[in-house]
């Protein structure tokens, strides 16, 4: 590092998400190893790899749910982990969809969607509710506006969770295995919503093993193993012509199901 400003990597680049030599440890475990990855605006990147390879940790760093030890991570032109960066503000630009939905159980579907727009974006309640209803209709849940999460199926809950993110009109959407906790018959209803979001030009990073989704909307597939990015390519390159033994072994496992 020399003078500040001169060496701020990424500030001059257009990458929406820019990892530069990022490392992270959990105790002695080097959970992210020299990660360098740039995601362009409107790009959809699918992240896959065996369980425990660091996929969740990777995308959780982007909105500061995890902190990085060294390297640089620049999101929407702001340096994550820099004391000068207002993380709360940056998070309003990043939607995060969890494997386990994490809807607020004491709030209705509509209240889940409008909470942050009303309290963080300071949008008037009536306006936020109107927008919330439209979003829920868009994810196919117009009739579930007043339902509580416990009254919804997993697929419906995950669609509410996606609507909840979209309600903030984010620049980036992150998905952490959004369909892994779902019964098989509910997977496609969630993937359809994600495809629609991608086709509207959202910048997305999606941790998933759904090849159909990747082939349909992803520009790039990134394969992780033991904390490192081992391989990266177009969905067709990766799924049809994997280059490494590790990716071949991984693909043969997920294809068997």
């Amino acid at each position: 590092m020399t003078k500040a400003g001169m060496t701020q990597p990424g500030l001059t680049k257009t990458g929406m998400i820019d990892f530069r030599d990022v490392n992270k440890w959990f105790g002695a475990l080097n959970v992210l190893r020299d990660i360098t990855l740039s995601v362009e605006p409107r790009e959809v990147v699918v992240v896959c790899g065996p369980s425990g390879s660091g996929k969740s940790t990777l995308i959780r760093c982007i909105n500061g749910l995890e902190t990085i030890k060294d390297g640089h991570l620049i999101v929407d032109g702001q340096r994550v982990g820099d004391p000068a960066t207002n993380m709360t503000q940056l998070r309003t630009e990043i939607g995060f969809v969890f494997q386990s939905f994490n809807l607020y159980p004491h709030k209705t579907a509509l209240e889940n969607v409008t909470l942050a727009p009303i309290h963080v974006r300071k949008i008037p309640r009536a306006e936020a509710e109107q927008a919330g209803r439209e979003l829920l209709a868009k994810v196919g849940l117009a009739d579930k506006v007043n339902a509580y999460p416990a009254q919804l199926s997993g697929g419906q809950q995950q669609r509410v969770a996606i609507a909840r993110c979209l309600g903030m009109r984010p620049k980036i959407m992150l998905f952490d295995e959004p369909t892994s906790a779902l019964d098989p018959e509910m997977i496609s209803e969630v993937l359809d919503v994600m495809v629609a979001v991608a086709e509207e030009g959202m910048t997305m990073m999606v941790v998933t093993h759904e090849m159909g989704f990747a082939r349909k909307v992803a520009q790039r597939v990134v394969f992780m193993d033991a904390g490192a990015i081992v391989e990266s390519g177009t969905p067709d390159e990766f799924f049809s012509h994997p280059k490494t033994d590790r990716s071949r072994a991984f693909l043969s496992k997920i294809l068997r199901h």
């Binding site: 749910l65 709360t88 998070r91 309003t92 969890f98 994490n102 809807l103 942050a116 993110c165 903030m168």
Partner: peptide, 13 residues
Amino acid sequence: SGQVEAALASGLS
């Protein structure tokens, strides 16, 4: 903790 993470992720103070 997932509840707090969801709230954090949406930018709530």
